[in-house]
Nucleic acid binder design. Sequence first.
DNA 1: CGTCCTAAG
DNA 2: CTTAAGACG
Lengths: 257, 257
Amino acid sequence: MLCLYSWNVNGIRAAQGKGLLEWIHTVQPDVLCLQETKAHPDQLDEALRDPDGYHSYWAWSSVKKGYSGVALYSRIAPREVQIGLGIAEYDQEGRTIIADYGDFVLIGAYFPNGARDHSRVPFKMAYKAAFLDYTERLRAEGRPVIFCGDVNTAHRPIDLARPDENQNTTGFLPEERVWIDEVVARGYVDIFRELHPDEPDHYTYWNYWGNARPRNVGWRIDYFFITPDLRPRVAAAEIHPNVPGSDHCPISLTLHP
Amino acid sequence: MLCLYSWNVNGIRAAQGKGLLEWIHTVQPDVLCLQETKAHPDQLDEALRDPDGYHSYWAWSSVKKGYSGVALYSRIAPREVQIGLGIAEYDQEGRTIIADYGDFVLIGAYFPNGARDHSRVPFKMAYKAAFLDYTERLRAEGRPVIFCGDVNTAHRPIDLARPDENQNTTGFLPEERVWIDEVVARGYVDIFRELHPDEPDHYTYWNYWGNARPRNVGWRIDYFFITPDLRPRVAAAEIHPNVPGSDHCPISLTLHP
DNA sequence: CGTCCTAAG
DNA sequence: CTTAAGACG
């Protein structure tokens, strides 16, 4: 079995203080994609920069310290790892790591937040377009693709606790949701929803304010999407809502070898 | 007995969390001068803004939020309270409260820090000059004067643990020390030193870094100065080095009625 | 509410 | 090392 995890840790250094490395040691994911690391690798302990038993890869924001940032921990070294989509405007924010495992390409991504005042929604949409463009090119080359991470968008009403109140909140705007429609229309599979159709109350993010998490007032905005050719290999897709350490929880995808 | 206290609390809100109000309740000072409150009174709880049994007076920085700021808590209402020296350049940083108690004038002050790069030493010296000018005018009117607070200057080698290493550190620069010489030359009495001559190791401030406080590597930079006419009323002048809650400790002056 | 940055001490 | 503010989420 190949166990892939994705987790927006909301600051990898803070997460370290809350047991990130112990969690990794317990769960032993084969691959772990992290988002919102909020650090340059030089700012990290050796134990975090290069955890025992893993190869590690980093993308960070070159424009704003302590902002955004993604990482990939992998027990097996990918054939090749690319940092960024190849577009400076997006890559400078440290949002994307692309790892070629031969039998599939894995992309770990932290999609932009649209901002409370919606000022970053255009940037978010542009990133999404460039991202899909990238995965589509991989498919055109016949590559199976897995992409995961914090997409910062709930797809359907079932994917958040308060859909009605959030029609005008970034993360559930019609134009943001339509992008996921488009992704699905092109054949990518939201594998958690595929395996758990019509099951409500499964979320991956809870606002820190107002006791949202204990009340499970959350959003499912972290995903594994796969191309259909990988569907037969899927053993499980899960959300791990009880893992503490961040305002997001880890999600996982288990593949047959 | 009239018990006057002075304490640089390094953030009154942080100090509240560390038991400031409980300490006040236990000690019951008649007057308490606070420095580095780092808050506008509007940012405070009622309990802190107007403690039970006290009249309270506030000065805050109008130029920088969360910076500087002094307060005066008094069981008896002074006849008159003046915020600031009457010079906009100094008063805008919220450094001075002047309370007229009839039989003396009390000034609680937070003298400027000279800054690591010494860039604020000129401002500090200018404040000191204006301050002494003010107290001298009070004396010219025949008023007994007490001034207290964080003077941000150790007077003599006995007043800090590492005089040799700090010859070029603000807080022990020759020009800064000379101002205290001048204060003393004009007859103001450093009442703690008067009552504890030649006693080393009495400090009121310890750097947070490097375990300075447990090792008592400190500075005596908080003072009560009095005019000689008040000397007969002095019952005690003390430093309270074991009171936690700040990088400074409280100091006190006890007067006969 | 929480993480990180910066200014200041 | 610590406080507080500010940006961002």
